[in-house]
Nucleic acid binder design. Structure first.
Lengths: 170, 170
DNA sequence: CGCTAAACGAGAATCATTACTAATTGAGTA
DNA sequence: TACTCAATTAGTAATGATTCTCGTTTAGCG
């Protein structure tokens, strides 16, 4: 059949695609969708979350393809990989920033950061003889939403004279 | 058989043991050996590294026991759990400190830290409405040993007019 | 078109971690 | 010292995430 309505028209013309092409690499449709899924999310998705998302548009995509490309895209610097208590996560925000993890709901928030980073890093470089190439700062605590929820249930508890509230995992 | 040569004499008298005992918990021999293994190491061992170590003195110990107790001891505050690119690691140093991971050899070093921490934390608490309970700072780069190694091979390379050095994983 | 390397999909294989269960052990008490 | 009960264990099965393999498809280029 002729090329009517071909979902992936001719080769990508985005900057990313061109940069890859120059090295004999391709920004295929699965790859593009995986990148989009991560970049569109602020939730620092896991590999399987990305898989679920990409599947909506490309139902036959394989989980292996998702893993393979998350790695690939991270190596190309188009996204960032980060390991934490909740396993591997991916971050479409490649600008320097810090993270805040809510210990109650498990959500990971981006926080402006960067500012203090330089100082922290300089301090270490001066102290040790190590060559510091990068650093990461993570905060743990309770996000605004969970603080409110906790306050509310605390009030309820006091009113009803009940036991302690049960925290829920992510 | 009667109790000749019982490897674990009478109950532990360490502060940790007593604190646990007060709550009906025990610092058993496997548990004690697991704690010792982590505390004796500066290498931030993985669960299986601890397993290998404990096995030397207690060959019949089970891997499940090691995992169970690493968790238990972390919950009791006797050691710290940390997740990173190289999976779950355990840290016998419960004082606040930061970490430096060498991207070449994979070793994780403790770095004094703490000092700058407070400021970093205060900044975030002020910026967002989040309640910050804890934070973690990690540095990445090349440790002294690896820098020396790199310099040496660089020299060699120059002498022989070769291509770029191949970094080796951890 | 036809070629070649890049990339894919499917499923097997691997690895770390957790769950389960019957047996053992420790600490207090009769 | 023996008894009892809950805590803890060893061993092993189950789970879940990630990686590997391999036969097939596809993009880009002559």
């Amino acid at each position: 059949m002729p090329s009517l309505l071909r979902s992936s028209g001719r080769s990508e013309s985005s900057a990313a695609a061109q940069s890859l092409r120059a090295r004999g690499l391709r920004l295929t449709r699965p790859r593009r969708l995986i990148l989009d899924a991560v970049q569109a999310s602020t939730a620092h998705p896991s590999a399987s979350a990305v898989y679920r998302q990409v599947r909506r548009r490309l139902p036959r995509v394989s989980l292996a393809t998702v893993y393979r490309n998350l790695r690939f895209l991270a190596a190309e610097g188009l996204l960032r990989e980060r390991a934490g208590a909740s396993g591997l996560r991916f971050d479409g925000n490649t600008r320097p920033h810090d993270h805040f993890t809510c210990v109650r709901c498990g959500r990971i928030y981006d926080v402006p950061g960067g500012g203090a980073g330089g100082g922290v890093r300089a301090r270490l470089a001066a102290t040790t003889g190590f060559e510091v190439l990068d650093h990461r700062i993570e905060f743990f605590g309770r996000c605004g939403e969970c603080r409110r929820r906790a306050r509310r249930s605390l009030t309820t508890r006091q009113r009803r004279s009940h036991g302690r509230a049960k925290p829920q995992g992510q």
